[in-house]
């Protein structure tokens, strides 16, 4: 059921084709699967294992290493509040406390309407704009309790649907490598001297 659908299998094969070894596509395919289903299912892992030529246990091992992959369903919007140094210095704890009060869930919980999952997050690479948070990994800088409430209202009302896609969708622009322009994969099994480096051939 939650294997990759036909269109995504096509896409998966295209992604796999960009790497010298299929297993390199594991993380991109897990993202693709999360985009399709909102989270990662066992069936999806088994399917990806088939596609990249690894065992399901290996793909599971990779999947559980990275915190973006959710093995259980999460809310439509994943609200990650950064708690690392600069954000903590500038009020992350207070923001988290406010968020818990506003959403009515503790960090790690999902609201009963399935809209929001609240998480404590680590450094989001926006330290000068602290305190920070992300909604489905879209940065929200210099948060205050007021603009937190406004953000949640906008999300609830569907006013940000054009800007913040549902959980699972990362980038809405994908790389395309046109077949006629591709240089092709550089396989480790085919030791070819780069054509522009004639002197290296000697």
């Amino acid at each position: 059921m939650s294997r990759l659908n036909e269109a995504n299998v096509m896409l998966a094969k295209e992604i796999i084709g960009r790497y010298p070894k299929a297993r390199s596509a594991t993380i991109p395919l897990l993202h693709l699967s999360q985009q399709q289903n909102g989270y990662i299912t066992d069936d999806a892992i088994a399917h990806i294992a088939e596609l990249v030529g690894a065992t399901s246990a290996e793909v599971l091992g990779t999947c559980t290493f990275y915190e973006m992959f959710k093995m259980v369903p999460v809310g439509k919007y994943l609200v990650n509040i950064c708690g690392t140094m600069s954000c903590q210095l500038l009020g992350a704890d207070e923001l988290m406390h406010h968020a818990e009060q506003t959403l009515g869930v503790k960090a790690g919980g999902t609201t009963s309407d399935g809209l929001f999952t609240l998480e404590h997050a680590e450094c989001q690479a926006a330290c000068t704009e602290a305190p920070n948070m992300q909604v489905n990994y879209r940065h929200c800088h210099r948060m205050t309790t007021t603009n937190f409430d406004k953000l949640i209202d906008d999300l609830r009302a569907g006013r940000l649907e054009g800007e913040i896609p549902v959980h699972g969708t990362l980038a809405r622009v994908r790389q395309q490598i046109p077949a006629d322009k591709a240089a092709g994969v550089a396989s480790p099994d085919a030791p070819v001297v780069p054509a522009w480096m004639p002197e290296a051939a000697q």
């Binding site: 993380i27 991109p28 006629d180 240089a183 092709g184 054509a195 522009w196």
Partner: peptide
């Protein structure tokens, strides 16, 4: 600028965009 025979030279290289999933 990227791909096969860049700017008509023998220089050919693909740049593949890859993305992580949350692990410092």
């Amino acid at each position: 600028y990227v791909g096969k025979n860049i700017l008509g030279t023998k220089f050919s290289v693909d740049i593949v965009l890859h993305w992580g999933a949350g692990a410092y």
